[in-house]
């Protein structure tokens, strides 16, 4: 049958709807329906009524609020450090140097390894009794006694920040590298002819051209860092004395250790709202100014 070349075929829409079905079914069954069910559970009151009991408990739960503050501080520090290191990596990787492929591959390795495995590797490196870092520190006489990297709360927090930075700086680097490689070289040449120095070229060309990529990287990293689980679980398990107990660890503790599924659901919904708020702020920023 001959159909007109322009315009849609009659059955086009039917075909396009039909091929959407598998993905929608999969998402509906594993993500959307369970999410709605959990929302329902979190609103359940005594005798089948709707109640905000779980939520009033959330906002007065001192342990939850402490965990939230801790997670936000962690995310702020970690994302900042990842960003600085990742930016430096990207600026170095974009240079047309010999052996560039080797450096790119090496720098990508930390990001691609399983976080649980990375946690164990660094736990061994920072191990107090005969780990390599303390061994070197003692041998070089930097400290008198081993540093309690994972046993003392402040050190443990710092160690988790460091390990997360090590793992995710390459991700920031890859996103920024993509931005750096599409900046036209002529812009730099023109600016150089106009007498702009290295610093001015960076602040007048590189930074503004890179801003959308910077915001993309920061959005992804902030949202994911708020939900960090694997690395902390393996490295410290949330300890010592809850010093590294991030939101995700608090939720899993309430749900799986205290078997408080309804409260766990309310905590998840609360965390969902916070995460969406962060994401909306970032997309608002990127839309308004650029």
């Amino acid at each position: 049958m001959i159909r007109s070349h322009t315009g849609s075929y009659p059955s086009d829409t039917a075909f396009h709807i039909a091929i959407l079905i598998p993905a929608i079914l999969l998402c509906a069954f594993t993500l959307i329906y369970p999410a709605l069910l959990a929302l329902h559970t979190s609103l359940a009151g005594p005798g089948g009524t709707v109640s905000l009991n779980y939520y009033s408990r959330v906002v007065t739960d001192k342990l939850f609020l402490a965990s939230l503050t801790r997670t936000i501080i962690f995310a702020a520090i970690a994302v900042f450090l990842e960003f600085v290191l990742g930016f430096a990596m990207a600026l170095l990787m974009v240079m047309p140097l010999r052996g560039r492929s080797f450096f790119r591959t090496s720098l990508l390795v930390p990001w691609v390894l399983p976080p649980a495995v990375i946690g164990l590797a660094w736990r061994w490196i920072f191990y107090e009794d005969y780990g390599i870092v303390n061994d070197l520190i003692l041998r070089m006489g930097i400290a008198e006694s081993p540093i309690p990297f994972l046993r003392q709360p402040h050190w443990a927090f710092a160690t988790v920040v460091f390990t997360d930075m090590w793992k995710t700086a390459p991700f920031v680097a890859i996103i920024l590298l993509a931005g750096l490689s599409v900046i036209p070289q002529e812009l730099y040449e023109a600016a150089a002819i106009d007498g702009a120095g290295r610093v001015r070229r960076f602040s007048l060309i590189t930074l503004p051209m890179l801003t959308p990529y910077i915001l993309t990287a920061l959005l992804f990293r902030s949202v994911h860092t708020l939900g960090i689980f694997d690395l902390v679980w393996v490295l410290t398990g949330g300890g010592p004395s809850s010093s590294t107990e991030m939101l995700s660890l608090y939720i899993t503790k309430q749900t799986f250790r205290f078997l408080n599924v309804g409260y766990g659901a309310a905590l998840s919904v609360t965390m969902f709202v916070i995460t969406i708020a962060v994401a909306v702020i970032f997309s608002f920023l990127s839309r308004r100014r650029f």
Binding site: I24, C27, T30, L31, P34, G227, F229, S268
Partner: peptide, 22 residues
């Protein structure tokens, strides 16, 4: 939004819902 959001959000948000349903 439906297809991209799960990849942007931290997976832990879906943990309790999926665990409960499954």
């Amino acid at each position: 939004l439906l297809f991209l959001l799960p990849g942007i959000l931290p997976a832990v948000l879906f943990l309790v819902p999926i665990y409960r349903f499954f």
